[in-house]
Design a protein around this nucleic acid. Structure first.
Lengths: 242, 242
DNA sequence: GCCGCTATGTGCGATACCGCACAGAAGAAC
DNA sequence: GTTCTTCTGTGCGGTATCGCACATAGCGGC
């Protein structure tokens, strides 16, 4: 947390006042997580929570037949493992690293203890919980009503928002797993974007060249999620920054 | 809450210990809500929360073009208005009555105050929050991967679980709005079920004749939601029932 | 350079669902 | 009863996506 650049830190941790921060800091462990690493499986009792710094973690539901769908995504705006303080201790989805990078890790009970001290951390993580719910809701809507083209654009934007650069390391196969569609569908949609000069990609590396064009091609879902997250999370910062 | 039958009460309220219960009871107002009534619109600052008794409330997202999709459903196992204690105060979805009936209404700030007393009510509503998230997640998955037939079965089962009888008052048009599909699609799926003798319906009244058959025809989503809700909510009752 | 693996591109028939148009049928209004 | 409205049934062409098969291309290992 002594990082001076301000870009590769976790916003949730950042927004804590200094006393809470000092209580947690000794127990925060900076770890590297690898692409594809599973932070927990459905039903696993969680032992740690993670505060992503420059990694992205997807909450993914995997069906009995192996097909999957991304439920929501967590980056440096959030925290992985909220079911710990919600009281369920496990979820029905898998948390898998979608983009490798660093995260702060904390023993679950330390967060839960701090949560129950009933201070600002509680308010902050509850508001974050609501923003996650917004994301899940919009994922449901998007899955029902929008084309792969729109969903890919939404997915790229959501990922881009959680990463410091304009590059993603991600094969079309993996994106297809997240969106819950065929890989060929992603190939086609990505091909269109590349022809238009909006993105550029090759063998698992995607570079976004024209963010504004992506925003034009996506559905309203991205905007809804973005706006609601901003509302729920920046207000936290504002009210706690003294 | 002095109801002696035990069937038309709200489980969340029921599971509170007597002292919390006594604090809230004077402020609980038993109201009737009508089919189609909107409890709040996206962005509305919520003033009340509702504890359904024998009504069903859908959380529905309505797109700019008017198309819609149900995000989750709340019956006597839950509470409408959780964003109040989550801190957001409003959501991006609409809460609309899907099945008329009774609900206990409570001024929002009373619930929030009790929540911040940090007792069992907090634990209970947080666990309920997680069960709602499970439902949202599964809605997203189901929208992506399953047929209208399966989704209709899931929807009927989820509604049935929240109502004391085996009857629903609900036109195919409304079901279609919930599922986010064409009305004709629902007609076809419902027609199949009727031919098989699983349900019986006419002009807005649906009677479920063979629940087991419905469970066979639905996707895994129903089971996941049911199991997870039971886990999250009965444990609460158990731990608080002294 | 060559091999082999993984990532991406493409074509084709099948299908689930949509959008629309309209017909019948059950109640409600009168 | 007759009329009107609402709910349900059905058909048909269009399209997005699927499932599968296979072709091509970039890159690492040797």
């Amino acid at each position: 947390m002594q990082n001076e650049t301000g870009i590769d830190r976790n916003h949730l941790l950042e927004s804590l006042s200094s006393d809470v921060h000092e209580r947690l800091e000794p127990h925060l462990e900076l770890v590297e997580v690898a692409l594809g690493q599973v932070l927990y499986e459905p039903g696993d009792k969680m032992r740690h929570v993670y505060f992503p710094v420059d990694c992205i973690v997807s909450l993914l539901y995997v069906m009995r037949n192996g097909a999957s769908a991304e439920i929501s995504v967590v980056g440096n705006e959030g925290i992985v493992g909220i079911s710990l303080f919600l009281g369920g201790e496990s979820t029905s989805s898998r948390a898998v690293v979608q983009s490798a990078g660093a995260a702060y890790r904390l023993r679950g009970w330390r967060l839960v203890d701090e949560f129950h001290l009933h201070g600002e951390l509680m308010m902050i993580v509850l508001r974050y919980t609501q923003s996650l719910m917004t994301q899940m809701a919009q994922t449901a809507v998007c899955n029902r009503h929008h084309t792969i083209d729109q969903q890919l654009a939404r997915w790229l934007l959501l990922s881009l928002d959680r990463v410091p650069s304009n590059q993603l390391t991600m094969t079309q196969e993996l994106i297809a797993n997240m969106l819950g569609v065929r890989r060929e569908g992603v190939t086609e949609a990505a091909g269109k974007l590349q022809k238009l000069g909006v993105i550029e990609y090759s063998r698992g590396h995607i570079k976004v060249l024209d963010r504004a064009a992506l925003e034009k091609r996506t559905c309203e879902c991205y905007g809804v999620v973005k706006t609601e997250c901003d509302r729920l999370l920046t207000q936290v910062n504002a009210s706690n920054r003294s």
